[in-house]
């Protein structure tokens, strides 16, 4: 479980996040929604210790990110919004192996995991391709493969559908659903598109750095969404 307790985050003398108290349960599909600039990504970056709280705590499976930065990061994978900037190596399979090399796994194990991940995401056909030459949808999948290969317990998807066409959107959404339902990975989806909430169980609504709704998707109503600056 990811617990966020009394979280405040200050940047440039301004509080971006104020008194956040939420819990993300294991195995859930949680969507964090809010208008642009509401602090969604800033909050998500606290989950894998890319950002540390100015005040308060973020605890991942009992590990406080302030103290156990690396261990928390091992548990929480992050697929960035600008997935093009997420890739370090030019060749698809080498980029997927990057995180595994950092974990200092055995060579054979790395080759095996890369192979399985490529097959899982159905991108085996582009394993030797240059990441600059593949389509946006494929780049998104390679970015996800790089994260998935590291076998995280939680995966944050930061606005994964904004740069994709309708077919790729559908594909990434169904992959997220499968990862959650079949592989029991906790999915945390950051979005401002209401149609992306299709597979979410829980929703956390953020407005100007504070949580204004935290509950089951079915409890969401037009009034709350409007208050958050989102059109229902």
């Amino acid at each position: 479980m990811i617990e966020v307790k009394n979280l405040y985050f200050k940047y440039d003398e301004k509080f971006i996040l104020k008194n956040i108290n939420i819990e993300i349960k294991e195995g859930s599909f949680t969507a964090i929604i809010g208008a642009n600039g509401s602090g969604k990504t800033t909050l998500a970056k606290h989950f894998n210790a890319l950002l540390l709280p100015t005040k308060g705590d973020v605890i991942v499976d009992g590990l406080n990110t302030k103290k156990y930065e690396i261990n928390a990061r091992k548990k929480v994978g992050f697929v960035f919004q600008n997935f093009e900037d997420q890739m370090v190596h030019s060749i698809v399979e080498e980029d997927i192996a990057f995180g595994l090399e950092n974990l200092e796994l055995e060579n054979n194990e790395i080759i095996d995991i890369v192979e399985k991940t490529l097959n899982k995401l159905k991108i085996k056909n582009i394993e030797k391709d240059n990441v600059n030459m593949i389509s946006s949808g494929q780049k998104q999948l390679v970015a996800l493969a790089g994260v998935l290969a590291m076998k995280p317990k939680y995966i944050v998807f930061d606005e994964p559908t904004t740069m994709l066409d309708i077919n790729n959107k559908k594909n990434i959404m169904s992959i997220m659903k499968k990862l959650n339902k079949k592989d029991k990975i906790t999915v945390i989806l950051i979005t401002n598109i209401l149609s992306d909430l299709k597979y979410a169980d829980n929703v956390i609504l953020i407005k100007k750095g504070t949580v204004i709704f935290d509950g089951k998707k079915s409890m969401l109503n037009k009034k709350i969404l409007k208050e958050a600056g989102l059109n229902a």
């Binding site: 970056k45 894998n48 890319l50 690396i70 990061r73 091992k74 994978g77 992050f78 960035f80 600008n82 900037d85 997420q86 890739m87 370090v88 080498e94 192996a97 990057f98 995180g99 595994l100 090399e101 950092n102 974990l103 200092e104 796994l105 060579n107 790395i110 080759i111 790089g146 994260v147 590291m150």
Partner: peptide
């Protein structure tokens, strides 16, 4: 882009003592 990449590398546990698996 450099800032995004740096975040992504940190997120993927960049380890300067690691080696290529090849």
């Amino acid at each position: 882009s450099a800032s995004n990449l740096s975040n992504a590398m940190q997120s993927r546990l960049y380890n300067e003592n690691a080696e290529s698996h090849k």
